[in-house]
């Protein structure tokens, strides 16, 4: 009607045929953060690169925490090197699984109480039947984190003897950490 059509700037309304194609994303474009290490982080990154050598496929970092991506089959070796080598990563601070839909990523945050440095190891697993060797023999803390990842994401950890459900109960079907697991809308049951 007038020039100030409220719909002017927006993408066309989705028809039934549009939804079959790639979903149109509304809103501002996605910005990817620039990852930058500070001085301390650079030093840790150097140490990490020295320790891992050719094991590291990929490396970057943010602030004081560098990360390195290793092959899933080599993760245990890489972790062992980090623990016993010059880095002295004696604490498994955090371990988590991330569901990137096409793959599952395991992230290990390591911490050294002697050097006061953090570093992150990452490993990509296939979305179907993810499996990675256990780090329980390196850090006690691994056992519960692994059981949790097994509950919520269905990751298998050969080498961890006790894989009984930790957070969920026996007989729970599915892995609720995955993006494909539905969350309920309110309903009476």
């Amino acid at each position: 009607m007038t020039e100030q059509d409220p719909l002017a700037g927006q993408p066309e309304a989705k028809g039934p045929e549009a939804s079959a194609e790639k979903p149109v994303r509304h809103g501002p474009p996605i910005v990817v953060a620039e990852e930058q290490l500070n001085e301390r982080g650079e030093q840790t990154a150097e140490q990490l690169a020295r320790t891992l050598g050719a094991l590291a496929l990929d490396a970057a970092g943010r602030d004081d925490t560098p990360w390195a991506r290793v092959d899933a089959s080599q993760l245990h070796r890489a972790a062992e090197k980090c623990r016993d080598g010059e880095m002295g990563m004696d604490m498994l601070n955090l371990m988590l699984a991330v569901d990137w839909v096409d793959r599952i990523q395991m992230i290990y945050v390591l911490y050294s109480t002697t050097n006061n440095r953090k570093a992150i190891l990452k490993a990509d697993l296939p979305a179907e039947a993810p499996k990675i060797s256990s780090v329980t023999d390196l850090w006690e803390a691994g056992s519960w984190y692994e059981r949790e990842a097994h509950d919520l994401f269905g990751v298998e950890f050969p080498g961890n003897s006790d894989m009984s459900p930790l957070l969920l109960y026996e007989g729970f079907e599915g892995h609720p950490g995955l993006k494909s697991y539905p969350l309920n809308d309110y309903e009476e049951w």
């Binding site: 609720p176 969350l183 309920n184 009476e188």
Partner: peptide, 17 residues
């Protein structure tokens, strides 16, 4: 009624169930 966790997969929607 489940409160802040009403969408969760593991919470009972009120103890009266």
């Amino acid at each position: 009624s489940g409160g802040p966790y009403y969408r969760s997969y593991s919470v009972v929607m009120g103890v009266d169930h």
